[in-house]
Design a protein around this nucleic acid. Structure first.
Lengths: 133, 133
DNA sequence: CTGTGCATGGGAACCATTCTCAGAAGTCTC
DNA sequence: GAGACTTCTGAGAATGGTTCCCATGCACAG
């Protein structure tokens, strides 16, 4: 395996601080919000560095990233493996969901039309039980 | 019905020009691309106006809008009714696809977790047969 | 034809994100 | 532990898509 060999990254205070915040976070948050949280904690980290580390973590599949309607990128820690999200549009609470049948349908549909290297995005939005009352 | 009564919009040259371009377009295009096409046709329209009209058309469900990975909003004319897209990430060619089973799965999954007023987004990206060769 | 008010457009403003690059700080070697 | 080597950091500038501002234009009713 060569996939595991790439962690030539240095163990800096800033990287640890960002990871720590992401561990504590319950829902999705923007890079700027995470930057603010770090500032509040007294673990000040440059905004560029926050962006860089979030991207690195997302590339390593340690975080999920998605764009909201405003065009911001939101991050959240995630379990490994392919999955989708059920997000409360009111409070941001997120449930990770899987749908093997959907995966198959997407691949099959793409293949039927001659498409290669297929990816897909799927997010479900709604109002959770707590927020609905 | 009150939904059909709202077209108190003026019939300007610019609005007609934008609609005309969208009718001719095969795949998704960004506001800026559409602005360029208008310029090429000699039907010059201000960039702000292009944005405004595209948004208006999308709000009226006459266009589909989606965001690409770069954060740009892309527009395309769409057939009525709920559907999803299979988009070539190279040339932008788009196939509208339907997946009743997926709709049902999404609604069911959300319901199972107590979510209400459920919506979902689903897009499939790939490289089409022509671009793959 | 004339008045009224929405539409237009050019440029400034906005804002999330990325880039730049000099200085700071991990890590490896001896 | 010291020194060399290299990656990481951060402040501010740059970027780029989109929206805002507002004086002027133009569609449409009367």
């Amino acid at each position: 395996m060569s996939t595991a060999s790439d962690t030539p990254q240095r163990n800096t205070r800033q990287r640890r601080a960002v990871q720590s915040v992401m561990m504590d976070l319950e829902g999705f948050a923007s890079a700027q919000q995470i930057h603010d949280i770090l500032k509040q904690r007294g673990e000040s980290v440059g905004l560029s560095t926050v962006y860089r580390n979030l991207q690195a973590l997302a590339d390593a599949d340690l975080l999920d990233a998605l764009r909201n309607d405003d065009g911001e990128t939101l991050y959240r820690r995630c379990s490994s493996g392919h999955h989708h999200h059920l997000v409360c549009r009111s409070c941001g609470r997120t449930v990770e969901v899987e749908g093997p049948a959907v995966e198959r349908w997407a691949d099959l549909t793409a293949e039927k039309h001659g498409f290669r290297d297929v990816e897909h995005t799927l997010e479900i939005f709604g109002t959770c039980a707590d927020c609905a009352s």
